[in-house]
Computed example of a mutant assay.
Amino acid sequence: MIALLLALGSSLAYGCADFLGGLGARKAHVLRTVLVAAPASLLVELLVWPVLGASFSAGALGWGAASGVASAAAFVLLYRTLAIGPMNVLSPVTALVSAALPVAVGLLEGEHLGTAGLVGLPLALAAVVLVSAGHGAGSARPSRTALLLAFGAGSAIALQLVFLHQAPADSGVAPLITGRAISSAVTLAAAALLRRRLGSERPAYALSATAGVLDSLANLLFLLAARSGDLTVVAVITALYPAGTVLLARGVLAERVHRGQLLGLGAAALAVSLLALT
């Protein structure tokens, strides 16, 4: 139950972070947004270091660095994806892709599900599909480029989560700090190389920084959830984060929520209830 609650918190934080990051990327080049978000995330992880501790072993540094590279790619691809829009379609597509690899890794590592979990797991995946499926009259259709970016972002997120899960359980927040430091360095290097293409628009500092803080919180909650529960369940619950993004996009941007998406939200709630019984 603790792992489930942590995963739900991670899902909520990811959904809010993606929404704010996507909005920020609409106001300036995506790299400018990430240059604000990534350091803000690192600051949060440094602040929790004294509380949760950190052991910078070879395993923590290696897996943390790998997660950092994946995180940098995820930041750029995801915020660019959501900047193109529509958020209420692309975010769920990204989430579905991001759930597949961690679930496969968990099953290959020998994790087993009870009867409720065997029903809840595919139902949760179906919920993500339903939230993203169908456009309905008057709804915006994503471009091929946007869909490719969404698949790329989902793959990067999946790798980041798997790499974090592989880090030693006694390493504290060391993998997060290492990963965020690496992702910030990679982003800074990319921005330096592409500085002439970044334009003159200033990023939405408050939106971008808040997105970074929420993303850091989501990573922390996921790491704690994965250490106290099965990766298979935790990854799927975390992948339900589009529910928050979809609802925020509906309330703030007036993006249309299709009837199938509402059905998906209901299926997600039922899936979480079933997975809580595992």
Score class of each variant (00 low, 15 high):
Ser67Ile: 08
Phe75His: 11
Leu78Lys: 04
His135Lys: 09
Leu43Glu: 07
Pro86Cys: 03
Leu123Ile: 06
Leu96Gln: 10
Ala74His: 11
Leu130Gly: 03
Gly110Thr: 06
Ser98Pro: 13
Leu78Gly: 08
Thr81Glu: 08
Ala83Phe: 02
Pro102Glu: 00
Leu61Arg: 04
Pro102Gln: 00
Arg80Thr: 10
Leu46Asp: 08
Ala126Thr: 05
Ser143Ile: 07
Leu42Arg: 05
Val76Asn: 02
Gly62Thr: 06
Ala137Tyr: 11
Ala73Asn: 02
Ala95Gln: 09
Met87Gln: 09
Ser91Gln: 13
Val76Ala: 13
Leu78Cys: 13
Val48Asp: 03
Ala58His: 15
Gly68Phe: 08
Leu130Asn: 00
Leu90Glu: 02
Ala60Pro: 08
Val51Arg: 10
Ala104Ile: 14
Val69Trp: 07
Ala95Ser: 08
Ser91Phe: 14
Ala72Trp: 12
Ala137Thr: 07
Gly62Gln: 10
Gly110Ala: 10
Gly85Ile: 09
Gly64Asp: 07
Phe75Thr: 02
Leu108Ala: 06
Leu107Tyr: 05
Val44Thr: 02
Val105Gln: 14
Gly136Leu: 02
Ala137Lys: 08
Gly136His: 01
Gly62Ile: 05
Ala124Asn: 12
Val69Gly: 01
Ala54Pro: 15
Leu42Gly: 09
Gly120Ile: 02
Leu52Gly: 07
Gly64Pro: 01
Thr94Glu: 08
Leu118Asp: 08
Pro142Gln: 00
Ile84Trp: 14
Ser132Phe: 01
Ser91His: 12
Gly53Asp: 14
Ala100Leu: 15
Val129Lys: 05
Ala74Gly: 07
Val44Ile: 11
Ala99Cys: 13
Leu61Pro: 11
Val76Gly: 05
Ala124Lys: 07
Val128Ala: 00
Ala127Gln: 05
Val103Thr: 10
Leu130Ala: 13
Ala66Thr: 09
Leu78Asn: 14
